[in-house]
Each structure stands twice: as C-alpha cells, then as structure tokens.
Design a protein around this nucleic acid. Structure first.
Lengths: 361, 361
DNA sequence: TGCTGTTTTTGGATTGGTCTAAATCTAGAG
DNA sequence: CTCTAGATTTAGACCAATCCAAAAACAGCA
C-alpha cells in the first residue's frame, strides 16, 4: 500500500523550474541560472536569496534541458569487451572514481567482443550526445572506426588495445615491456627454452606481447622459440600446454597471454602429473587477485587496471576541454610479481630486475 | 595530421535537425517526428520520402531534446558496491544484455559501499532524469532511502540486498535456501560441528544467511553453533578460521559468507598445516569462476549473478511501463556446486539433494 | 456535386534551461 | 550635481525535439 505523499509534489513529478525559483526569490530566470552555475557575476546577497529559494522549493536541476542549449552533457560512454573479467571491473572502478570527482557520469556497455554490439552502442551514445567515449575496441573492430568517431567530432580515448593510424589518445600497459620482464626473469633463473602461450587474432595488445617475446629471445640469444596462438581462455591454456609438453623438446617455462591462460596451463600441467614451477615454470599477465590464490601461487606481470582506468578518464576530460590538443598516449609500466609458479623459490638464485625498453607503436 | 572533413559538416557539429529533414523532404517537422518514432499515422509514400532524406542528410536523433518534451530518457542508473568483484561484473553483464535489447542504456556507479557516494550518484541520476534505478544498497544505507526515491517518483529495483519496509521491487538469490543447501550437504557427509564465517554488519543479505544457518542447525538438531561476524574480505576468512581452529572444540566444517571469505579460510587452514576438505570442510557462496581454480577446488553455492542482472533489468522495464503496478520480488534458487573443498571426494557417501523452504522477508 | 467520416498532415505552443546583448544600478571622479 | 566605468540584472531568442488540436486531403455515398 503506497502511502500518500506529503507537501506539494504535484502527483507525477515535482518539476519546479527556474521560473518558479525566480518568482519565489524575486529575481529573473537568468539570475537563477547564473547562481546555479556558480557564476561570479551575481552579488552575494542575491546569491543567498536565490539559494534559499532553491532549497525551499526543492528544486532539481534538469541537465537534459541544460545540455540542449549549452554544449556539455557531463556524460561519457565506456565500452569494454568483458565486464565479467575482474580486470575490467578494476578498470571501470578506476574510471568511475576519476570521473565522479569531476561531476561526470558514465554509460557502460559490454560489447562481448562483438563489433556489431559495439557499433550499436556507439551510435546510441552519439544520440545521447555524450562528451566522449572510452573505448576498449572489440576484437575485429573496423580500423576506420576511430576515423568515423573523429568525423562525428566525438572525442575518443582508446584503452588496452588501439586501432587505426591517426595519432590517437590511448591508455594501457606496456605489454612489450611486461613480456620482457617475464622472459628476463626466467632467463635469470637459468631457463633457455621459453614458450609463449595464447593471444587472439591480431590486435595491438597481442602484437605488442609477441614482439616483446621475440625481442627478448633475440636479446638473450636464445634459439628455442614457440609461440602458440589461440583465443585467451583458460580452456586454451589447458589444451596448449599439454600439446606443448608432449613435443620432443618441451619448454622449461611458459609465458602466458594472460592469467586465465596461465591458470589453464597450470591445470594442464597437473593433469599431466607435472608440478607447475618445478617441472615447468609458468608466468601470467595481469596479476588478477586470484593469482595468489592458486597453488602454487602464480607469478604474473601486474598491469594495474585501476590506474589505467584513472588515466584514461583523465585523458578524456583533458580532450573534452581541449578538443584539438596533441593526442597523448599513457603507457604504464607493469611490474613482475614473483610468486611460486615460476620456481623462484626452488632455485634460490636472485631474480634480476632488469630494465628493458618500452615502446608504443 | 587531421584531414579536412568532406561535405557540409559545419566545422563543429553536423547538427542536422528535424527542420532540415522536413525541408529536404517537403513535409512538416511534425511528420518527420512521427516517422522517426515509427508512428502508423504517416502514409507509406511519405514515410519512404522522409526516410530517404534522413539518410541523405546524415541526421542524428537528439535524445536529449526528445526527453525534454517527452517523458522518457531511455536511460537507467545502476549502483553496485564493488564492481571489481567478478560477481558484480557478471551481474552487470546480465543487466546490460537485457537492457540493450530494449534500446535502453545505463549509467553505472561504484559506491564502494559508501552511502555518501551512493547518494551523490542518485542525486546526479535524478538530475539526468533517468527512467529508473537498479540499486545494490551500500552498507549502512539509510533505510528511508527507498521512501525518498519513491517520493522523487523514481522507480527503483533493489538487488541482492533490500532495505526499508514498504513493498519493493527486488531481485536476488535465496540466501536462506543457499545456506540450508550447504549445511544439509555437510550434515549428509556426517559433519556435526559446522561454523559460519563472516557477514557484514546487518543487512538483509547477511540476515538471510544467518537465519538459514540457524534454521538448518535447529532442523538437524545440532548443538554446535559458531557464527563469527566480520566484514567480507579474504583477509577476514584467513584470520577467522585460524581463531576458530584454535578453540577447544574446533568445527569440522565451515560455511563462508562468500567465496572470498572461503578462499581466505582455505589459506588459513594451509597456514596451520591443515588440509581443506580433509581436516576441515569449506563451502563458499557465489560460485565465482575462480572457485574451481583453487586447490582443492571450492564447493560453493552458485547464485547466478548474470540471471539476477537480467531479472532486475526486466523488473525495471516493467515498473517503468507500469509505475503503479504491484511490486514484484524475484528470488532465484541457488544451486550447490560440489567440489573438493568439502571433502565429498574423501567420504564417498552421497550428498543429499534436500529441499528447504525459501523465504522473502 | 455536396456531405460526411476517415486518414494524413501541419502550425504553433511547450519543455527547461543557456546565451547574448542590452538595461539598470551602483559609486567615485570631475 | 552630472557623468562614466564597472558591477549586476534582465528580456527574449534559442536549443531540438514532442504534443495537441485543428486543417487538409481523400474516400465513399447519396
């Protein structure tokens, strides 16, 4: 049983407008508008009078109406391809934190790595006139998408992956460096046969990892090179490692495309009766929370999703305030989190904290 | 180097309006509006003519303007308290899927369990005139918040937790039944000293679990009863289990508030030199993806976050179309996912799939 | 052809703010 | 006491759609 509303609420919506405030405070609509926007034009006594009226009448600012005449909506669109992945959860938390500080609010969409879904959402965002887009491009996104967004006059910050040629705004981890750190560490432990597991069809985030892998091997003068492509699920890791270990000269260590693949690989090793870290070192990428839960705990390249989210949000706000400034790429250095799965505990030789060159193609 | 735009795009925004379409097609603004909304009033030849003009001029529908005059914005607000938790990721994916099918789009906010942040966001949502709110209330939310939202005339669907007295719309798992399933299973395995680990300060989701725990014990006539309160982190599970196992008569099994606490508990057991599943059975709640990754794999009560998200979205749309219909509560039955951590493998006695009564206070 | 009853189409008001340029109001200088 | 620069305030157009009631077009029928 819904109880009756008290006070003046007019049945449906309160809908107190600037006009009402103006009448109540004995000033004009324009003055009230100025007060609402914190303009320094209005005199102190007037401001107080108006603010009192605003409070008294229970006024609610109508951003939709404001956006119609003004230019900004104070909204952003965020597209990720797998929100169920805790990595994106952390990233979205970072975005949310940075944006809400500035009074912005964001639409979220989960593209499920479908360019079609992604495009539908972007079109909807255009209709809602968001001030900008934070985009983790779906696998298979048309490389001209960024040009389309530019043609729309829609600021766009790419995250994690990047497409297109034009100079763009971007925030993401330095995958190249991350893989180098992993390989360097393994080499420091004495490994000479290091494989790389997984990686979607080509996109920047995959390419950077593969290049990191190849460059590292070359730098250390290692001959052994096995790069097994696949999608990026745990299932893949499980299958690939078993395939790999049955080869004539199996690797003594594997670096995995991400932690999910790494978990799968550890599972696969156990299935073969092998012990991760002892019979074959395993290193993941992302350092998700669960990395330290598994047994042995997973050594992983931490890519700091929360910080990436914050940076991306910062870039977006910057771009909105300066639409034609120079594009900026923020590439965060990852950090190797050493745990049991790479056998560091077993071979007490200290891991080298070697620096490698990062790059942004 | 940004290339010059072709065609008529006026420097900043294209901003083709209904007026332009109307002129181009030789009809009135009103007619174009009707075509856009798929009205059956307009004759077929006219419709085609207008649609051609729309395409020709590259018109973009302005939802902000439409919302100003019309009533709907086709937007919703979603508030969760920990988006980094994969449970919420899956839930948001479910919401997103159900909403995007209907052309709705949603603002997401992460309250971090702070009522202050939550309130700020809700006020912003009101200013943006969303059609409704999907709310997982933050810990410590003022119970009158729902009344406030009602007074605003803002439809609100509560998820996972619920506050307030008024009949409300709600979607969530049947925690009471879930805990009963867990306890029943343990009793079936021969356990008689079963503890419950964790749970925030009081809110519905905690209360339902505790009641489930107490009711189960009573139903099975068990004397042993240990309910350790704490927040819901892995750290808590780690600490609590060690405290518990050092008591004179430690439990032989623990049911945990959620999987995070359960992971912590398993860690704690290992720290004590004990084996989860053998020395003490552990059952979690949620059945997050990682449950089967840990060692031993975690037995857990699956609560189906994706389905809950879909249901909540469905409820929201229903409420928007019928603002004063009877409130509806959707309580999904959980399912016990048996794995190694409860020792089922060790004691081959079959688990009973006993039904218990669910309830919605 | 005139009349009536549907279909279609349309003008103009409306939504709730912001913007611009002009009006009004100070206070200090001459 | 008048004038003017600077500080406040305001009127009215404007943003891009929807809504309503009334006009126009069209058909069927006498």
């Amino acid at each position: 049983m819904t109880s009756k509303r008290r006070s003046s609420a007019t049945h449906r919506e309160s809908s107190v407008t600037l006009q009402d405030i103006a009448a109540h405070a004995g000033v004009s609509r324009s003055t009230v508008s100025l007060v609402l926007r914190g303009s320094s034009l209005v005199a102190e006594p007037t401001r107080l009078k108006v603010q009192a009226s605003i409070k008294a009448l229970g006024y609610v600012y109508n951003r939709g109406a404001a956006a119609l005449r003004g230019r900004r909506t104070s909204t952003l669109g965020v597209v990720v391809y797998d929100i169920a992945n805790p990595f994106f959860g952390a990233m979205v938390a970072g975005i949310d934190n940075a944006l809400s500080r500035e009074g912005y609010v964001s639409f979220l969409a989960n593209s499920e790595d479908s360019p079609r879904r992604q495009e539908r959402f972007l079109e909807r965002m255009r209709e809602h006139a968001v001030d900008g887009i934070l985009l983790c491009p779906a696998e298979g996104t048309d490389p001209t998408l960024i040009d389309t967004l530019n043609a729309w006059g829609m600021p766009c910050i790419q995250i994690l992956r990047h497409i297109g040629e034009t100079p763009f705004d971007y925030a993401g981890p330095d995958f190249h460096l991350g893989v180098c750190q992993a390989v360097d560490h393994l080499v420091g432990l004495g490994h000479e046969r290091i494989a790389f597991l997984g990686g979607h069809a080509e996109h920047s985030a995959t390419r950077e990892r593969w290049e990191g892998y190849c460059d590292s091997l070359a730098r250390h003068g290692l001959d052994y090179k096995r790069l097994l492509r696949a999608t990026v699920t745990r299932r893949d890791g499980f299958a690939l490692i078993q395939q790999l270990m049955s080869e004539p000269t199996p690797p003594t260590a594997v670096v995995c495309h991400n932690d999910m693949v790494a978990f799968g690989a550890m599972f696969g090793l156990k299935r073969l009766g092998l012990t991760p870290g002892t019979d074959c070192a395993v290193i993941g990428i992302d350092d998700v929370e669960e990395a330290e839960l598994v047994d042995p705990a997973l050594t992983s390249v931490a890519t700091h999703p929360y910080a990436i989210g914050e940076e991306a949000a910062r870039l977006a706000l910057r771009r909105i305030h300066d639409p034609k400034g120079a594009p900026e790429q923020v590439v965060l250095s990852p950090r190797l989190q050493v745990r049991g799965s790479c056998g560091a505990r077993l071979q007490p030789r200290t891991a080298s904290a070697q620096a490698a060159s990062g790059q942004m193609p």
